[in-house]
Every structure is written in C-alpha cells, then in structure tokens.
Computed example of a mutant assay.
Amino acid sequence: MNSNTSLIWNVLLTLAVGTLFFLHFNGKKSGGSFSASDSTSLAGRRIVYVQVDSLLSKYEYFKEVRKDLENRRYKLDYELNNRGKSLENEIAFFQQKAPTMSMEQGRSVEEQLMKKQQDFVQYREREAQKLAKEELDRNEELYSQIYEYIDRYNQENEFEFVLGYSKGGGILYANKELDVTEKVLNGLNEEHRSKKKDSGDKEAPKDSTAGKKK
C-alpha cells in the first residue's frame, strides 16, 4: 500500500493510540448493550478499553473506504502514467523531426509542448491534492462515526474512560476482561449495514404495478 493510500489508516491510528478514546463521558445509567461486568472500578472510576488495531481492521465501513481510496489512487496513477508517456512520445517525435523544421515551426511546436508539459504538471498536482483532501475528509468521517457511537452508547452507562489500546502505544498492559472491542465493533457494523440497507431501499425503483388491482 503506498503512502498516500495508507494516509487514512495512519492518521486514524495516530489519533486513536493512547488517547483516541481517553474521553470523559457523562450519562444516565439506564441499561444498554454494555453491562456492569464490562468495566471495573479504579478509585471509583469505571474503565473499559477498545483494541484500536482490531477495530479498524474489522470495521466494514473502514474497509470499504480504504478500498475505494485505493481504487481511486490506482486509477489516477494509471491515468497520469498514460498521459506522461504520451507527452514523452510527442517530445521524442519533435526531437526527431526538429532538424527538418524551419526555425519558426520548431519554436511553435516547442512552445506547444512546453504548454502541454505545464498543464500536465498542474493537473497532476491538482488531482493529487483533491485525492489527499478526500482521504482526510473520509478519515475525519470515520473518526466521528466511532466517537459518536461510543458517546451515544455511553449515555446508557457511566464509563468515565474508554481507552484506545494498541501494541506499542502508551498503555503497557490491558486486562482482557475490560476489552469491549467486539461489542463496539458489532454495534458499528450493525449500524453500517442498516444505513446501507436504508440507502438501498431509498434508491430502489418503485414497482409501478404495486397496489394495482388485477
């Protein structure tokens, strides 16, 4: 995976390790998908944690976004490669024919090729910036979805800290009994599937014969 395509993974992982879910929540306890056995008290504080690596690698929406961005990067690289080769061929052809051209003809063709080269460089930079911005936007969207999900479900609990655990991160040890990764992951994926289904239902064409009497 190239550096640009993996940007969304690296940024989200950086945000998550150590402090991503080191958040202070307040909410009324009224029961929910988490139970008292999912957390422990430490000096009066209720703490659980999420394995960041597992969450990101198994979150279906994250995988879809990453695949989409990789495809976009591949298509852009392919297009730029073809355009670059085409321009190189034009330049090589001009260099071959230049000795047979008049000074005026040679200058005119050279100016056209220089203009094409400048346009190509500008297009390449513009498209690369657009893709990088989209990657950052999708990264922010993913972060917000995870944050909002935990925030929403924590309104039914009284967790004071939901830590983001990752090997090599700031947390040196995490008791597996406090791991709620699967609960969070299942909830996120369930919501994503529900959104996809709702979106598909809205886009599906209506049956013009529905409701008609035979």
Rank of each mutant, 00 (worst) to 15 (best):
Y153Q: 12
A98P: 00
V17C: 03
N175S: 06
H24V: 06
Y123S: 06
L163N: 00
E111L: 15
D198N: 13
V48I: 11
V48G: 04
L131N: 04
W9G: 07
S3V: 11
D38W: 00
D77P: 02
L172K: 15
S57H: 10
Q122D: 11
N4I: 15
S33K: 12
F21V: 01
E110C: 05
S39C: 07
S6R: 13
W9A: 09
N26G: 14
S144K: 11
R83D: 09
T209P: 09
Q112C: 04
S54L: 07
M1E: 14
G187N: 02
K214V: 07
D179Q: 00
T19Q: 03
E110R: 15
K67P: 08
S6G: 10
L56G: 04
L23K: 10
S37C: 08
V162Q: 01
E203V: 10
F21H: 03
G106M: 04
E177Y: 13
S166G: 12
S86T: 09
L172P: 05
D68K: 09
L42C: 07
K130V: 11
N139F: 14
R152N: 14
A210Y: 09
G44A: 04
Y149K: 01
A132Q: 15
D137W: 02
G31F: 06
K176F: 04
K58D: 08
F25A: 11
L87R: 05
L136Q: 14
S41K: 04
T19H: 07
D68L: 06
L23E: 15
S54F: 04
D77K: 11
I150Q: 06
G211H: 08
K29T: 15
N71S: 02
A204T: 06
V65I: 15
K212I: 02
E88C: 01
K196N: 02
E90A: 06
L113M: 03
R107C: 03
Y49F: 02
S199E: 09
A204E: 09
A43E: 11
E90G: 02
L42M: 11
N4V: 14
Q112M: 10
E156S: 14
Y173V: 13
V180W: 05
A16I: 12
N4K: 15
E140R: 09
N189C: 11
E203S: 14
E190A: 14
K58T: 00
V162H: 00
M114I: 13
F21R: 03
D119M: 10
L131T: 09
L55R: 01
E148M: 10
E203D: 10
L13N: 07
Q51C: 03
N89S: 12
F94E: 01
P205H: 05
A128Q: 15
Q129V: 06
S86R: 07
F22S: 12
Y49I: 01
S54N: 12
